[in-house]
């Protein structure tokens, strides 16, 4: 936080954001100190942006001692790719991009193969391939406990087997801020520095710190079609329009970002950060509603996690 905002460090009580920031920095440093080849999963979303910002703080004046990894699906929004490359170049941090070669070959996409197969093959399998390819033993992810009921009990340091599986029985109790980061050969760690942040905390921190985020989070006229009650943006010519279907220009924004055919937009003219936060606070539906992935099956998150999903 800027020194002006830090005025309260002279007083006795730190604000909740200062404490969350300090906790995340501690987690980042602890993970790096006890791993050989750490990497940060970079999804280009707002949580990733905050996590990257915290990583820069944790190791300042040095650069974060790990690369960023984007497990790509080739189906992200164009603006996300532009933003990703710009950020990596500006910060001087190495960016690795992995696209599952099998998916490239088979042309896996959400339209012909469904969201479940698409997500599993590009993201879950792709992530495993990437971790194996570069032999990473620890990966940071931007997941938060408040995102979903089943995440409420997720560890900050989550152990995965050599096959990248999450075994609920092998998860370790986490006391104080004393994390057990030790692993056997082949085992890896997924680490979630934002575990204790809420959606509002993330937004407030972006606001206070002036953290750059993709402009898709702000309301603007965009070409959308309505599918199963969700507003889907037609971001390129790969989008299969139905006969007579015409993308409409509507003022929309996104609460969460992923593959554009799987990201539901909300109608909004909120084009400033404060307006977005205002809408977020006044909204009456939960954040993940826009994520098509969660609707596939109840308890789907647990199943995906056991299979190696983040």
């Amino acid at each position: 936080m800027s020194s002006e905002d830090r005025g309260s460090t002279m007083t006795d009580t730190l604000t909740h954001l200062q404490r969350l920031e300090a906790e995340s920095i501690h987690i980042l440093r602890e993970a790096v100190a006890e791993s050989e080849r750490p990497v940060m999963l970079y999804s280009i979303g707002k949580d990733s942006s905050v996590m990257l910002h915290l990583a820069r703080k944790a190791f300042y004046p040095a650069l974060p001692p790990f690369p960023l990894l984007h497990v790509d699906t080739t189906w992200k929004f164009k603006q996300m790719y532009e933003f990703r490359d710009k950020m990596a170049a500006e910060l001087g941090i190495e960016l690795l991009v992995h696209q599952n070669p099998e998916c490239l070959e088979l042309g896996i996409n959400p339209f012909s193969h469904g969201s479940a197969t698409h997500t599993d093959m590009w993201k879950t399998q792709g992530l495993k391939q990437a971790l194996d390819k570069w032999r990473f033993d620890l990966a940071f992810g931007g997941a938060r406990r408040d995102e979903e009921k089943s995440r409420a009990k997720e560890r900050v340091f989550s152990l995965r087997s050599a096959q990248h599986r999450w075994d609920p029985k092998q998860q370790r109790p986490e006391l104080w801020r004393t994390y057990n980061v030790r692993r056997n050969p082949g085992e890896t760690m997924r680490v979630f520095p934002l575990s204790n942040w809420t959606e509002l905390d993330v937004w407030q921190y972006i606001y206070l710190e002036g953290i750059p985020i993709v402009s898709l989070y702000f309301g603007a006229p965009r070409p959308v079609v309505e599918r199963d009650g969700a507003l889907i943006m037609v971001d390129d010519e790969r989008f299969p329009l139905f006969d007579g279907e015409e993308p409409q220009l509507r003022s929309v924004r996104f609460r969460t970002l992923g593959c554009y055919p799987l990201s539901g937009a909300v109608e909004s003219t909120a084009d400033t950060l404060t307006a977005v936060i205002q809408e977020m606070l006044l909204t009456t539906t939960s954040e993940r509603q826009g994520r098509v992935i969660d609707h596939d099956s109840a308890g789907s998150m647990e199943k995906k996690k056991q299979e190696g999903y983040f």
Partner: peptide, 18 residues
């Protein structure tokens, strides 16, 4: 007392610093 924002005059318990 180093942080990315600026050096601090003082750090208190619960703060992450260098």
């Amino acid at each position: 007392v180093v942080t990315m924002d600026d050096d601090l005059d003082e750090a208190v318990a619960e703060q992450s610093v260098t």
